[in-house]
Write a protein that binds this DNA or RNA. Structure first.
Lengths: 320, 320
DNA sequence: CAGGCTTATTAAAACGTTTTAATTATAGTT
DNA sequence: AACTATAATTAAAACGTTTTAATAAGCCTG
C-alpha cells in the first residue's frame, strides 16, 4: 500500500539501514548518499510508519486523555490546550469520554493500554480505577491529573489554586460590604470552600454557610436572616442560584450579589454578567501536557497550582 | 516490560501460534489446551499489544477526527457520539483540533497518516487540504464528513436536513402571523436560507431578506418597515440578534420573534428560552462513526440527512 | 606492500503479533 | 501391523522500523 523504507532502499540502491540513518541525518553516513536518499524519499513521498517505529522503540507517540461526560465548554478548552502541545511535539491525542461508570472507564483504560500509549492525562476517574492507574504509572505510562486534585500523592496534578479562588471571592464581597454569605452548592474537594472560610475569618465576618440544594437555598433566602451574597462553586451553579433567587422575587445584584467560578463564555453575556473567578483553562491543558512530556522524559515533576483571577462584572454590587 | 505472547507461550509450554489461536477460540486447537492457555494468559494478565497486531494486519484500530477550534458545546456533543461508538467497537479516537490554518491542518493530517489511522471523520477542512483528503480516501483510509456538507461527491456526509430546518422555522413563524422576516447572519452553504425562501414562497409571504451584520440589523430594525421576526442561523446568532434588538429598545418576543438553530444547552435557559430548530448532535456523531465503520468494512454508503425538530419556547409569539 | 586506521555501508536481529503451510501425534481401517 | 485419514500443534515468515555489530573499502605509514 503505502511506500515503505524497503521501497526507498531499493530505488536508491542502498540498504534500509542507510535510508533510516540518512533520514535522521546521522553523521556516520556520507553526505552525498544522504542527499541522494533524502531526495528519493521525498520524491517517493515516503513517511516512516509509526507502527513499525513504535514497535521497535516501544514508544507509540500516542497519549491518552480521559474525561467524563461534560457538556460544558470548560473541558473543551482544556482539550484544546492539551492538543496544541501534543500535536506540536508530534504526539497523537487519544481522547476517551466516559459516562462516569466504571465499566466504561475500565474499557477505556484497556483500550488505551492496548494502544500502548506513552502517557496519560486524566481529568476524571472512578475510585475503582485508582489501582490500575497507579500500576500504569509505576510501569511505563506516566500520568498527570488535569484540573482536579490528584488521587495519589505520587501523581502530579495541574489545578487552579481553588483555595485562593475562594478567598478572592470572599474578599471581593467583603470589600463591597457583605457580611452574611452563603456558599452554593457542592464542593467535593472543599478547597474553594475552605478558602472562603479562611478569608472570612481574616476579614472577621461569620463563616459562610454551605447550602447544598436549590430548595435549601430558597428557604434560606426567604428567612429573615437571609444572606446578602452567594459564592457559587461554578458559573453554572451561579446561574442556578440566580434562577432560585429570582423565583423568590429577589433581584440580582440589588437584593443578592452572586459570584461564579470558571469564567465560561456565557458568564460574560449581558443576561448574566457574572462576577467570577476565572480559571485559565487552555493554559491548564497546555501545562498538563508539558508536565506529562517531562515525566515521559524521566524528569521528576511537581504538581502545579495555577493562579485564578477575579473578574468583576455586574452580578455583585455594594451592600445598601 | 509488559508480558508478551512469548512469555505466555513459554509458561504454557506451547508455541506462540497456539497462544494466539487459543485466545481467539480457534476450532483447530484442542479444547483442553485452549483452556489451559486462556487460564495462564489471564493469570499473567496478558493483553495482546495493538502495536504488534496493527503491524501484522496493517490495521491500527485508530480513527481520526478533525475539527476546528470550537468553543461552543455543539461539537462537544458530536465528539461524544463518535467516541461512544468508537470505544464500543474497540477503536481509539484520535482527535485533532485545528485553528483553521492550513499549516496546522497539514501537520495534523501528517500526524494522522503516520499513526496509520484506519478511517477519518472531518467536521472542518481547509480548501487546500482537499487534495490530500481525497488521496487518503482513494487509498486505504475512508473518510466521512460530519455535520458539514461534503467537499466532494465521493465522500459521504452526515448532516442535518438544513433545508427542512429553514422551512420549519418559517412555517412556525408564518403560523404565528408573521409576514416580514429577516435571516441573520451568515449561512455559507445557504441551505438553511434556501429552505426559508422555499417555505416563504409556499406560504406566499415575501422572501426573507438576508442580513449579515449586527449593524445592518440594527438599522433595519429602526426602519419603518422593520421585520417582525428573525430566523437566526444558529442559537449563538439568535442571541446576537436578541442583543441587537434590545439595544434598539425592542422587546423579545413582543416586538420581535426570534428562532435559533441547534438547540445548544443555553437555549433552554429562561434568560433566552429560545424557540429553535434542534439538531440531534450526539446522534449525528454516532451516525458518522457508524458510516465510517461500514466504509472501513468495504461497504458502499450514502450520505445521510438527519431530521431536525422544531422546539417552541418563548422567543417567538403571535403577531399582534 | 603488509598491517593498521578510518570511513562508509550493510546484514541481521529485534520489537509483538498473526497466519500459512508443514509436521507430528492420534485414532481408525483393513 | 501397516496404512490412511484426521486432529493438534508448531516453525517460520511477514508486517515496517531501528540499531548493533560486522564487513568492506579506502587511505596511511613505516
Amino acid at each position: 500500500m503505502a511506500v515503505t523504507i524497503k521501497d526507498v532502499a531499493k530505488k536508491a540502491n542502498v540498504s534500509t539501514a542507510t535510508v533510516s540513518l540518512s533520514l535522521k541525518d546521522d553523521p556516520r553516513i556520507a553526505k552525498t548518499t544522504k542527499e541522494k536518499v533524502v531526495k528519493i524519499a521525498k520524491q517517493m513521498n515516503y513517511f516512516p510508519s509509526n507502527l513499525g517505529r513504535a514497535l521497535q522503540s516501544s514508544k507509540s507517540h500516542l497519549i491518552g486523555y480521559i474525561l467524563s461526560d461534560v457538556s460544558s465548554s470548560f473541558f473543551n478548552e482544556i482539550v484544546q490546550g492539551i492538543g496544541e502541545i501534543a500535536t506540536d511535539k508530534g504526539y497523537g491525542l487519544l481522547v476517551g469520554i466516559t459516562d462516569g461508570s466504571q465499566e466504561h472507564e475500565t474499557r477505556l483504560l484497556r483500550l488505551f493500554n492496548g494502544k500502548s500509549i506513552d502517557g496519560l492525562i486524566v481529568s476524571h476517574w472512578h475510585p475503582k480505577s485508582v489501582k490500575s492507574l497507579l500500576e500504569m504509572n509505576k510501569g511505563k505510562t506516566p500520568i498527570v491529573v488535569c484540573s482536579n486534585i490528584s488521587f495519589d500523592k505520587t501523581i502530579p496534578a495541574v489545578v487552579t489554586d481553588n483555595h485562593l479562588g475562594g478567598k478572592l471571592a470572599i474578599e471581593h464581597l467583603v470589600g463591597l460590604g457583605h457580611k452574611r454569605i452563603t456558599y452554593c452548592f457542592s464542593d467535593e474537594t472543599q478547597s474553594r470552600y475552605n478558602g472562603c472560610v479562611e478569608a472570612a475569618k481574616q476579614k472577621k465576618i461569620e463563616s459562610p454557610r454551605l447550602c447544598a440544594t436549590e430548595k435549601d437555598l430558597i428557604s434560606l433566602l426567604k428567612s429573615n436572616k437571609r444572606p446578602t451574597a452567594v459564592v457559587a462553586f461554578s458559573d453554572i451553579d451561579a446561574i442556578r442560584v440566580k434562577h432560585a433567587a429570582e423565583k423568590t422575587g429577589l433581584r440580582i445584584p440589588h437584593d443578592l450579589s452572586i459570584t461564579g467560578f470558571d469564567d465560561i463564555w456565557i458568564a460574560s453575556l449581558p443576561e448574566f454578567s457574572l462576577t467570577t473567578i476565572k480559571q485559565p483553562q487552555r493554559e491548564i491543558g497546555r501545562l498538563a501536557m508539558e508536565l506529562l512530556l517531562k515525566r515521559m522524559n524521566g524528569e521528576n515533576v511537581k504538581s502545579r497550582l495555577v493562579t485564578p483571577e477575579l473578574i468583576i462584572r455586574k452580578s455583585t454590587t455594594t451592600l445598601k
